[in-house]
Design a binder for these strands. Structure first.
Lengths: 207, 207, 207, 207
DNA sequence: TATGAATGAGGGTTCATTCAT
DNA sequence: CATGAATGAACCCTCATTCAT
């Protein structure tokens, strides 16, 4: 990589970092292009060499940050030695929630305008070279656990939407309950969702 | 009510109706005050006699429309003759989802920036005289059904967040599944949530 | 005076008092008609029954307040027993300056946009019944003192402009000197002005 | 200086010139930013690149124009060959008054909202490179004349306030006397002020 | 006389985007 | 590639004034 390329990559990263800090601290609507280029210490025109507009840079950041968030949780669950599928999902859920609770700016940033569609694209279309396709990771997790799931995508969808939206309210407003109070309810419900999607080989006498 | 008061009420309703149509058709960000007063056929200054800004009128509309939505569902469940608590909740859920599916503009409008906090306020602080306090309705439903619930507020919170966020994605993007495909999954999960909050009068060997 | 007339007079006084308080505390530009009628507790339209606009009410207030200011000083000098013309003028000057120093809002109010023309009109066209024509008072003072003045109007003009403009700067900003430091300089200069306008009855070997 | 810099300076000068013409012809209150940019033939946003608001540009103009006014008078007095301090001050006074009489727009402009504080800043904080610090000029004048003054700043203050405020009324309204009628009175009084500030080396038998 | 809802022109200001250098 | 001065449309909001009641 030549000196010019390095400089180019550097400017782009400056812009991404500056945007992220501004978006998470003061929101995207209140952040102007001027703010971003000031913080990144590049000229205004330079912004438009790399990004179409504010929303372009936001989408790339959501993808990158979401991917990071889930991969950290995934790496952590692997290090934990937990093997049961249900337990692994709960571990990941708690890990992600704790991470978001510790970084409300990030939560607010990736939650706004966040639909399942955007989210899935974020997780399955890695933009950076370092980002991974979380869909593959998820499928691996299922395969490794040796269980059989009915409609695993719907299951993931429901879990993410439930955890995401209740977690948002708990973390941001402690309303109607704090995150710590919410967790037991969530865990029970998520386990219920997983079980209802699990195709049991043996006789099913629960629920 | 004098002629002046009637005129006053009329202008306010014009503004509310115009805003609602514009917000649901083109979004709040792309709607300007000028658009609203043009459609309502009042002067710009008149807007500021009744509302602080765009977001003031939006909050009032969310409150009003949400209240309406739930009351319609509640009235329908009463007419249906269904008495079982669980069945009544499922009925309401389906009714609301169908209503939103038929009116995507409304869905998009009340979903944006909608946190549980805002939502609860909308349902429990009726602004119009016609609006009702949904909290009372909910408590009545529980009382009438003769069941005993642990943490009914958390239960409602989880159901609304789950149904709301998954429903939004299904209705708006059919992603990952259409609304019709989603419903059975939702019903099963919601019943699970309700049961896990139900205090059994007989020997309690669960949990 | 009938009940209606009394009420009318009351409303007008409320408006004048409210305006004065607002003008002196926050300036005329930042004071809106709405502010005035709110404070006076009358309807907006009522304002226009009594005054043409904000500037109309201001001019009337300047006249009234200036007249008051000078008459208080005049009454004080009469009570003081001072008889010498020069000393009487100095006394009045100090009295007015002290009054203004104690009431900077008033100073700021009557000084802004205050030209000699406005001021003279204020002093010589009493609008309220209680206000007096200061010109007459001034002429009386001269006549009573038994001295003969060349161009008494120019003399008064120069004194008022000098004292007014230097006093304003001293009182408001203590710049370049405080009022107390300014006074001796002013006194000496004013005495000089008076003397140079005094027609000596004996042989005139000055100038 | 590059082409861009030249263009930049040109735009700024256009804005200053346009503002000055508008302020002096129709007053600052009736002049809108839109008027200014129309006359200067630049875009509205350009105004905000150079100035904070209307009052920012006014203050810079007052400083510049006042400095110009006094320097012209100072240059003229130097060319006149007059050496006596008193005579030089009188010459400057008359020169400035004549200039203002010939340019009432300028008078009205620099007189409004003009306090000694603003004025002194204008004269002692040259903003343009061409502007000079009048305070230095004044001190030089005193030093060169070989006289000794008590409180020269207060003396200047009194002269400027007296001449400024009486001159304003005379020039603008010929009230109570025209400028030509005023001048002899002013000259006598100003000479009196200077003398009362002059520390005489010889026996002091006056006043 | 008194009211105050309604008006709407006009204000100042922002900021995404362009393009000559 | 990089710059940043210039653009100008579009925004929100104020407020003096009117007039039907």
């Amino acid at each position: 990589m030549g000196k010019a390329d390095l400089n180019k990559k550097l400017k782009m990263e400056n812009l991404l970092n500056a945007s992220f800090e501004l978006f998470t601290s003061q929101g995207i609507n209140k952040t102007t292009i001027q703010d971003i280029v000031n913080k990144a210490e590049v000229a205004k025109g330079t912004f438009y060499l790399y990004f179409k507009d504010k929303y372009d840079i936001r989408n790339r950041l959501i993808a990158h940050k979401s991917s990071q968030l889930f991969m950290q949780a995934y790496n952590a669950v692997n290090e934990s030695g937990i093997t049961e599928f249900e337990d692994r999902i709960i571990f990941i859920m708690n890990h992600v929630l704790d991470e978001l609770a510790a970084n409300k700016g990030l939560l607010s940033f990736i939650y706004k305008d966040l639909s399942w569609a955007v989210f899935k694209r974020a997780l399955t279309n890695p933009l950076n070279d370092d980002d991974v396709d979380f869909n593959e990771v998820y499928e691996n997790m299922i395969a490794e656990s040796g269980i059989s799931l009915k409609d695993p995508e719907v299951m993931l969808f429901m879990i993410i939407e439930l955890v995401g939206s209740t977690g948002y309210s708990s973390i941001m407003f402690s309303d109607p309950v704090s995150l710590d109070e919410l967790k037991p309810y969530l865990e029970r419900t998520v386990r219920g969702i997983i079980r209802s999607h699990t195709e049991k080989p043996k006789k099913d006498n629960e629920e």
